[in-house]
């Protein structure tokens, strides 16, 4: 990591905390989270469910407001970043609008940004192909399988083409083969575009395969317990997952997760 000092910070969080006021008392979804994500990082967030992964992503996206600490996105407040359309967000569920075809769903953010029809059509066609949905553009979401719907929602975030991509368990509902394929595609996209990607997952191999930085989290209160820098080569064929280095990193993640659990 020689260039570390020269790279600019995309996300910086200090002592970040968020407490929900639920009916049965406060829920500490995030507590004392310190985090620095640099431009071009591929960061995976991993941890048991309820440890605040989604909440952290939503704070970055200005969909949730922190109750303690500070956070900046591209050096701005999350709200400013959102208004500047600094990030694309892939939700856990497809969230496609039922009255729009797949094409028009992917075009929705472009429509809102006010792009020209030609530019829109071009980007829609390109991203459809990227996620392997060419030929399905004229279908309505409810005519596609759940996995295809999720791919359409990824295409929608990619068409938006922001430098920061926030993805909340985007492949959680997909089968293994599609998942492998999309993992490869995502890696290639990352290498080609140099986007900064925040990726929530609960699969250890997926986290190790994709990222150069793995943030291990643990619940109650939701906090970061370990940040693992991965030194796997940039070129990652799928069978790198059998390599010794890969398994070592995976082991470290597993240990981190287990330690997080023993806190309770």
């Amino acid at each position: 990591m020689t260039s570390k000092t020269t790279r600019s910070k995309v996300i910086e969080a200090e002592k970040l905390g968020l407490t929900f006021d639920a009916n049965d008392g406060p829920v500490h979804a995030l507590k004392d989270v310190d985090l620095a994500i640099e431009k071009g990082d591929f960061v995976s967030f991993i941890g048991p469910s309820g440890c605040g992964k989604t909440t952290l992503l939503r704070v970055i996206a200005d969909l949730e407001h922190p109750t303690a600490g500070s956070i900046t996105v591209n050096g701005m407040t999350p709200e400013q970043a959102r208004l500047e359309r600094a990030y694309g967000y892939v939700f856990q569920a497809p969230a496609l609008l039922a009255w729009r075809t797949i094409e028009r769903n992917i075009g929705l953010p472009l429509e809102i940004m006010g792009l020209s029809a030609a530019e829109k059509a071009d980007r829609v066609a390109r991203t459809l192909e990227l996620v392997g949905l060419d030929g399905f553009g004229r279908k309505f979401p409810w005519q596609l399988s759940g996995g295809m719907q999720q791919r359409a929602s990824i295409a929608r975030a990619l068409a938006f083409d922001a430098d920061l991509l926030l993805m909340d368990e985007p492949f959680g509902a997909l089968d293994e083969i599609v998942r492998d394929h999309l993992n490869e595609q995502l890696l290639q996209l990352w290498k080609k575009t140099g986007k900064t990607i925040c990726f929530v997952t609960h699969s250890i191999p997926e986290a190790v395969y994709l990222s150069n930085k793995i943030v291990v989290m643990s619940p109650r209160p939701g906090r970061v317990t370990d940040i693992i820098e991965s030194d796997l080569p940039a070129e990652r064929p799928l069978d790198i997952r059998e390599s010794k280095r890969f398994l070592e990193i995976a082991q470290r993640v597993r240990t981190g997760l287990r330690e997080g659990h023993s806190y309770e």
Partner: peptide
């Protein structure tokens, strides 16, 4: 649905949009 509203919020869409 909350998720659909959030989606349009991430696009910084206006009230009329």
């Amino acid at each position: 649905q909350a998720m659909e509203r959030d989606l349009l919020r991430t696009y910084a869409s206006s009230y009329f949009q």
